[in-house]
Design a protein around this nucleic acid. Structure first.
Length: 284
DNA sequence: TACCAGGAGAGCG
DNA sequence: CGCTCTCATGGT
């Protein structure tokens, strides 16, 4: 299997911030490059000034699948220009400049975020890695590289037992993942539907799945389906909102939700990602 | 030891 | 509805 490579020209693309910002859980850094699995293929990425160098195992006639995943065609300045011009947002953009939204596979994103509830990012990474090892398929890697696994299909997980899944350290999330995988594998849920529906309906649809509440639905809508106004509110973002926008007074959750809906504009989800990464890595 | 971590669901009033 | 409790596991 030949090794193939290419270079994407990009502007303002902070690969490290993007891959460590909690939107995806499968990338590992070693010696300045990032190794992961995208669409069942082993991938290694390295960024330099205005370039992302990509390597995979052949055959790869075109790289559209990876361009789509990395969203290299997005004009970041145009997105940032739609953010509200206020002090917290300016601080987040300055601190995290080059942070991007990826465009992930819906099933992998959905399953990963079912596993994310009340877990820290390192632990989510560990659970997802175990899940892929045990239920994924071993994929081709270049000589000398450690083995890598595809993300298991809904069918592969649907055939597992709850005990099998609990062995991947996912605890009480196991029955949720199993039931959701079985609905999808059994054709009870159409994974492509949320892509075509307007945001509120798509959100309702996703929330019918076991283990998917509002927060996880918003994550999947933003990170996989490309709904740019989806705005996941977790404990970090809640903290950021209170600390940055409403210091020193109590804000009822409903009022906060109204503020979010009105304030962040057509790329609210991307703004959320900046605030999340900012408070998580720079403010604490 | 006790407490907490990017939540969701069920049971209450 | 809005509130509270529980759920499993690993780390501090």
């Amino acid at each position: 299997m030949p090794r193939v490579q290419t270079t994407f020209r990009v502007r303002d693309y902070d690969l490290e911030a993007t891959l460590t910002s909690g939107q995806v859980f499968r990338w590992r850094k070693n010696c300045g490059h990032w190794t992961g699995v995208v669409g069942g293929r082993w991938v290694r990425l390295r960024s330099s000034r205005n370039r992302i160098h990509a390597e995979t195992t052949g055959p790869a006639a075109d790289w559209q699948w990876l361009r789509e995943y990395l969203q290299t065609g997005v004009d970041l300045d145009a997105v940032l220009a739609t953010f509200p011009d206020d002090t917290p947002m300016r601080a987040a953009v300055t601190a995290c400049h080059g942070l991007r939204l990826l465009r992930q596979d819906p099933w992998e994103c959905l399953a990963s975020f079912i596993l994310s509830s009340t877990k820290q990012i390192v632990q989510i990474q560990q659970i997802v890695a175990l899940l892929c090892q045990r239920f994924g398929r071993e994929i081709t890697v270049p000589p000398g590289e450690p083995p890598a696994f595809s993300f298991p299909s809904p069918d592969a997980i649907a055939q597992a037992t709850e005990t099998d899944l609990r062995a991947c350290k996912m605890g009480f999330r196991a029955p949720y993942l199993l039931a959701t995988a079985r609905q999808i594998a059994g054709g009870k849920f159409e994974l492509n539907r949320p892509r075509t529906l307007p945001l509120p309906e798509a959100r309702e649809e996703l929330m019918k799945l076991p283990g998917i509440g509002g927060k996880i639905a918003d994550c999947v809508l933003l990170f996989a389906y490309g709904h740019a106004t989806a705005f996941p509110v977790d404990v970090w973002v809640m903290k950021a909102m209170k600390q940055l926008y409403f210091p020193r007074h109590q804000v009822p959750p409903a009022r906060l939700r109204r503020f979010i809906a009105a304030h962040f504009g057509p790329n609210a989800g991307c703004a959320q990602q900046y605030l999340f990464h900012y408070i998580r890595t720079k403010l604490k």
